[in-house]
Design a protein around this nucleic acid. Sequence first.
RNA 1: GGACCUGUGGUGCAGCUCGGAGUGCACGCCGCCCUGUCAAGGCGGAGGUCGCGGGUUCAAAUCCCGUCAGGUCCGCCA
Length: 579
Amino acid sequence: MSTNYEATSLRDSLCATISTEQVGQRLTVCGWVAKRREHGEHLAFIDIRDRSGVLQAVVDGSVDVRNEYVVRVTGTVSRRPEGTVNDKLATGEIELTECSVEILATADAPPFQLDDRVDIDEQVRLRHRFLDLRRDQMQRNLRLRAKVNAAIRAAMDRQGFCEVETPLLWAPTPEGSREFVVPSRLHHGEFYVLPQSPQIAKQLLMVGGFDRYYQIARCLRDEDLRADRQFEFTQLDLEASFVTQIDILEFVSQAVLDAAEVATGVRPTTIDTMTWAEAMDRYGVDKPDLRFGMTLHDLSDAFAGTEVKAFAAPTVKAMRVEGGAEFTRSRLDSLTDRAKGLGAKGLAWFKVTETGLESPLDRFLSDHERSIIQRVDGAVAGDLILVVADEYALACKVLGALRVEIGSPPVGQGPHRYVWVTEFPMFEGLDDDGNPVAAHHPFTMPHPDDLDLIETDPMSVRSQAYDLVLNGWELGSGSVRIHRADIQSRIFAALGISPEEAENRFGFLLGAFKYGAPPHAGFAFGIDRLVAIFAGEENIREVIAFPKTQSGADLMTGAPKSIPDKQLKELHLKPSKGA
RNA sequence: GGACCUGUGGUGCAGCUCGGAGUGCACGCCGCCCUGUCAAGGCGGAGGUCGCGGGUUCAAAUCCCGUCAGGUCCGCCA
């Protein structure tokens, strides 16, 4: 028999670990009163809840305990009388009798019910998060998260990675996401920032000879929040030397598959791979959700010489919505609004009927065009065809967004479909000065076949950057890094960063690279998101103990708050008007 | 910075279109009854700035404007 690690000075056992095997034993448990059911002067049932579950204690009616009192109960483990067994309870066959009850702490009535019977308003939950955490959902989620963390650590350790901690107080780098700023007390008017990721630190560790580094790292970004984005989030951050992309994908796969196995009980058999170009073309996003079809189909050739004005565009993309002919006009209007909101000129829709097409545009179509639309993706009567005509990238993006909006199942439904998206473009879009913007970051190694294009056709250069995607969520991304000064110079030049500016911004990294930088590559993926999907939660707040609201407030502590003038003075800070 | 949804005893909702007394339901809370319940049951009770401010009106939870908070999304997130 295994040692009972749960026994402490105050208790012998966890509530729900007691079974019929212990019948007759006198045991002590500790926990909260989950429920009290009174049956007159000399009989009451109290459910005692600890982290393992609940256990029923039979007590005298005079025992005055109320919901959420903290109690220590000593009693005899007994079989429940015939006919009173509760199948719904792990401990439903037993109960504690002849109990003595010690009240360790009394409790006010909680501001909301702690069972999972009703949804509680987000504000109320967050204001009293410490109570919310007692609920089964939060207990399950955070314990699941702990198991995932442990599995990830074990996988990295097994693969020879060394866990190294990197600073939270770091130097500002005017690149990428907005940083949280920390004023320096000892250096007037100067600031640290909290790292948006340990990116540069881990590359320096490579130069430092830690050829396999990892860390379960907190990252901080002062950007607007979303269901899958908090100011602070946790990543498995890793970097390795003397490797290529293939090695990194394998390292990360091991960690993710191990995590999936402990979380779901099943080890996923495959992680798909597709290029970024494929993902955009077929799914209209760089984070495709492979749980469902509704892929995008290119009709550009068929409509090349069309008379239909709405379709006179470089690219015509279509998507079949199974059963979508039932969509109401207002639903179609709202989809059209969404398409326009994303930059499309409009959204064409065609309901496929037994006799043909039903659409405001139908009368403008040639017979050939009509037959093309009717056959999109094997359409049958009752389906809906959505068409966007525009520049290639925009048509893909708009239809891709509609695909997710219409077809995406809830997080908890369907299989877990992992996919590596590779060959991201090196650059995307132009900044205000007309220079290309690094899609990943400026230290990303271009694809070896595209090195010659850096100067001639930068926007077509592919990079050795890759994302891991699960069910439409971007879990994380990584890249092979540039370790050669000549290639780095060419990339800086393409980005419009002068040597002086590069020295100013990244001098300490580039300087380090002069002393022997090994070829290296790395990755980082978000543990909040991974656990949220494992837990079937739509929002990462549900897997974070103390999250912030969408406006960045902590409703429990009241943060952010003003600080005393004395403290401001010490930091050499003066609030501007309105503060 | 923008769009949309929500805000009504402690909690979750209904009431809002079509203005007419703080009206209703469920849970919780308090008291009494009840010896086998487990979402216990029965009886009784307390508990409200209808988020806040302004406007329209004889009259506003309800209509209008503004504002705050929470949520979802766009922008943003190298």
